[in-house]
Design a protein around this nucleic acid. Sequence first.
DNA 1: ATGAAAGCGCTAACAG
DNA 2: CTGTTAGCGCTTTCAT
Lengths: 340, 340
Amino acid sequence: MKKITLKDIGKHFGVSISTVSKAVRDSHEISTELKLKIQKYAKENNYKPNKVALSLLNKSTKTIGVVIPNILNYFFIQVLYGIEKIANEKGYNIISCISDESNEKEGKTLEVLDAGTVDGLIMSLTNDSDLNKNIGYLQEIASSQIPVVLFDRVSDAINCDKVIVDDYESGFKTTEYFINIGCKNIAVITPIGNSNIGKLRVDGYKKALHKNGISFDEGMVLNIEPKHDLDLEMSFLLNYKKIDALLCLDEITAVKVQSIVKERGYSVPGDISIIGFTNGQLSKYVTPAMTMVSQHGKYIGEIASKMLIKRIEEPDGGEPFETKVIKTSLIVRESTKKIN
Amino acid sequence: MKKITLKDIGKHFGVSISTVSKAVRDSHEISTELKLKIQKYAKENNYKPNKVALSLLNKSTKTIGVVIPNILNYFFIQVLYGIEKIANEKGYNIISCISDESNEKEGKTLEVLDAGTVDGLIMSLTNDSDLNKNIGYLQEIASSQIPVVLFDRVSDAINCDKVIVDDYESGFKTTEYFINIGCKNIAVITPIGNSNIGKLRVDGYKKALHKNGISFDEGMVLNIEPKHDLDLEMSFLLNYKKIDALLCLDEITAVKVQSIVKERGYSVPGDISIIGFTNGQLSKYVTPAMTMVSQHGKYIGEIASKMLIKRIEEPDGGEPFETKVIKTSLIVRESTKKIN
DNA sequence: ATGAAAGCGCTAACAG
DNA sequence: CTGTTAGCGCTTTCAT
C-alpha cells in the first residue's frame, strides 16, 4: 500500500481533511475521542506528512546543497563531514554534488540547486573557476536567490560569506619552518597551481624566502597536472639543483613525492625534509610519517554550516558578509628534521 | 529579487498563468510573438520552474537517498562516488546521510527519507543493525513505500535488491592464499566482528583452514573495537602464539596493524605476511605497500544506483528481487611473500 | 490562441 | 468541536 495521505484518513473516518490534519498534530480543537481514533489509525498506517507538500507550503526545504570538487580528496570529505554534522543537528539534510573539477558539471549542478530544491548552498569552486562562467551565475544566486557560503576555493567576484584557510600565511609559516630547521633550497610542488589558494600559498612561500634573504627561483616551483608523469618531473627537479626541502600542496602529492624521493635514494628527512598540505589519513601512516599542514577540514565544515543556517533562518537582517579565516597548524612528524 | 514565478510573469504581461506555463515550455498553442516576449522576459529574470512544485505534481522528486554508516571510510566513499556518478547521469540527485554507526541516527534518517523526500533508497546498515529495530522499519519502507537497494552490510530480514561482496568466498580465498605461500598460523583482526559480513569472512577463513587440515583456534580471531587499545591487544596476540600471517578486515586496521607489528621488530613480509580488506588510498603508500582485497567500491555503487533507478522508473513490473554478488580481487603488493 | 479549473498534500484562517 | 476555503507553484485537460 502506497503512502497514505490526510485525504485517505479523512475518507476512512468520514471526516474532513483539515480535521484529520489537526488531529494528527494533536490540536486542542479536536475532541479527544476522535483524536485518539485518528492518531491510532495514522500510526498503524504509517502516516507521515509529505515533506514535499510542506516544502511547497513553507517555502523551505530544510535541505542544503553542498558542492565539492572532488570527493576522493580527504580534505573535502572532512569538510563534508563537518557540514553534515551541524546540519543534521539543526534538522537539515544535505544534497551533495560532486563537480569533479569540471566547470560544466559545476554549472549543471548549480542549475538544479537553484530551482528551489535547497534553502542554501555551501560550495568550493572547481580549480579553474576563476576564469569561469559559473562565477557570474553564482553571484546571481547569492545575491538574489538563496544564501551561499563559499569555502576554501573562493572567489572575490562573489559577494557572500566565506570560510577560508589562511593560505598566504600558511605558505609563509611553513616555509619559515623549513628555513628555521636549516633548509635553504626549498622547492614547491603544486597540483593546484592555477587556483587562488595555490597561488596564495606560493606567494607566502616567496615572502618567506625574501624575508630571509633567499632569492626566489621560478624553477623551484613545480606545477603538476593529473596527466603529467610525476616521476619524470621530479627527476628534472631533483637534477635541477640541490634540494633540501619540499613543500607539497596536497596530501596525495606529498605522499607520492616522498615515495619517489626515497626510491631515488634520498633519505627523508636526512637529505630532504618534506611537508605536505592537508592532514588526512595517508600522511600519518607512511614511512616516515609526514609533517603536515592541517587545515582543520571538519571545523571548516562546521563553521560553514553554521554560517549558512544562520543566514537561512535569520530574517535576512543583512549582516554584512563575513570571511572567516581558519588558521592552519603544523603537525610535526618524522619527514622533517633540523639540519646541523 | 526573490525567485520569480509563473504568476509574476503572467501579471507582468497581463496574461494567465497557464499561458505563461505553455509559453516557457515552447508550446505550439501559443502565438509566436507572445512566446518570444515571455521567453525573453523569463530568461532575463532567471525563471526556473520550481522543483518542489513539480515534485508534488509528479509525485517524483528525482532524488535518491543514500545512507552510509561512516563517511571517513574509503570504501563507502568509493561506493558513494559510484552512486553519484550513475545517478547524475540519469538526472537524479543524492541526499546523503551518515548514520555514524548509530542505530538511533539511522532510524531518524529513515524517518526523514520516508516522508516523500526521495524516490528511492540506497543503504548499508550500521554495524549491529541485525539486532536492530530499524530492520522492521526498513522492511516496511521497502515493501510499501519506495524501492530500496541494500549494499555491503545487508540483512536477510529485508526483502529488496542487494549488492554484496562475496565475503565468505573472499575470506576463504584470501586464507588459502596465505596457506599457499606457506603460512600456517594465520590470525584475523576484525573491527566488524558483530556484523554479518565480518562473520562471513571469518567463516570463509575457517573453511579454508579446515580444508587444509589446519585446526581453528578461537584465540586467533581478534575482535577489536574503536575504544580498545589496539597496541595492547596486538601484543597479547603476538605473544599468544607464533604468527606468520595476519588478515585484517578493513584498511585502516591493516595499516595500523602493520605499523605495530613493524615497531615490535617483526619484518613484514619476512616474519609476518599481512593482507587487508578494502583497497583504498592508504595501503598503496605505506611501507611495505600492502596486499589488499579490493571490493570494487565504485563498481558496487554504480550497480546499486542502476538497480535502484530501474526499480524507480519501471512500472513496478515486479521483477523478483535480485542479489548481485561482486567478486573481490586480491591486489598483491609487498606485505606478503612466499615462505621457503 | 488564450484562459479557467482542478489537483498534487498540506496548513491556516475563518466559519459554522 | 468540525468543516470550508484559499493558496504554496506548477501542469494539464477542457473550455472559449
